[in-house]
């Protein structure tokens, strides 16, 4: 009998380090309706974690807990704890504005400010007082746009409105804007759902590059996208975390039947 080695995992095995973020018994209520039930989830540093599940399963709700975006919804109540480097982000001492600078977000629909490309990216560093001089600010804007893979396309028209770019370029501009404040964690809520396949491929390539410097959490409806970009996948259903694990395992050999049914298209 020839020896058969099992499939090599997609991501190299990393030494076990403390997770960047930890959700511990997270419950979320919108008024009387409970949206999340006792979710425990660790977000590994410099890794891409994808959250998948049918609409209304709570994956976006969980994502929005990570930088307290849910605070903006009046009826929303969160219990349990969300730790960022061991510190509870829901602690009274936490400055929410500062938290959101550390945990940036990119949304489903590209939403550039109705300002110039330059101003879009410069806005965050300005309000957080990250630049001492115009030269400093220029440097931050340039490097952010470069890292977002947009530089070659916009370097000659930084003063033109950001809204004049194509959808894919706008989304990369939003990513540049999000990373300009030097966040540690980048949350992405279906960042490619409004983009064509080429623009999607560019963003996915970018996610892979950004992983070196950022911890990324992505919500996606595309199973293939989760399989392509992430190292860890968490499956949510009806507000519960059903299964989490290495992406390569989840998509070839999920342990849970509900996960199996969802990723193979047997429950919606």
């Amino acid at each position: 009998m020839t020896i058969q080695t099992s499939l090599a995992p997609a991501a190299p095995v990393r030494p076990k380090t403390a997770p960047k973020m930890v959700g511990d018994k997270v419950n979320v209520f919108y008024g009387a309706k409970q949206a999340l039930f006792d979710v425990d989830l660790e977000i590994g540093e410099n890794r891409v974690t994808s959250l998948i599940g049918p609409s209304g399963c709570g994956k976006s709700t969980f994502l929005r807990c990570l930088n307290r975006m849910n605070d903006t919804i009046e009826s929303c109540r969160v219990s349990g704890s969300i730790l960022l480097d061991g510190e509870d982000v829901y602690d009274r001492s936490i400055d929410v504005v500062e938290l959101r600078a550390r945990v940036g977000m990119v949304f489903q629909k590209p939403n550039p400010f109705p300002k110039s490309i330059y101003e879009n990216v410069a806005y965050g560093p300005k309000i957080h007082g990250m630049a001492r001089s115009k030269a400093d600010l220029d440097e931050i804007v340039t490097s952010s746009i470069r890292r977002a893979g947009l530089w070659e396309e916009v370097k000659d028209r930084l003063q033109e409105p950001g809204t004049g770019l194509s959808g894919g370029q706008q989304q990369r501009l939003c990513i540049a804007r999000a990373i300009a404040t030097k966040p540690e964690v980048l949350l992405m809520d279906e960042p490619c759902s409004a983009l064509d396949p080429i623009a999607t491929a560019i963003i996915e390539e970018l996610i892979d590059e950004l992983r070196e410097n950022f911890t990324i959490v992505i919500v996606t409806h595309s199973m293939q996208q989760a399989a392509r970009v992430s190292q860890k996948t968490a499956f949510f259903h009806l507000g519960k975390l059903i299964e989490e694990g290495a992406t390569s395992d989840i998509f070839t050999n999920p342990k849970n039947k509900q996960t199996q049914d969802y990723i193979t298209g047997r429950i919606g």
Binding site: M223, Q224, A227, T252, Q260, I263, T264, G265
Partner: peptide, 9 residues
Amino acid sequence: RQPMARDLR
């Protein structure tokens, strides 16, 4: 179909 999991196998 981009099969997954059991279907892929």
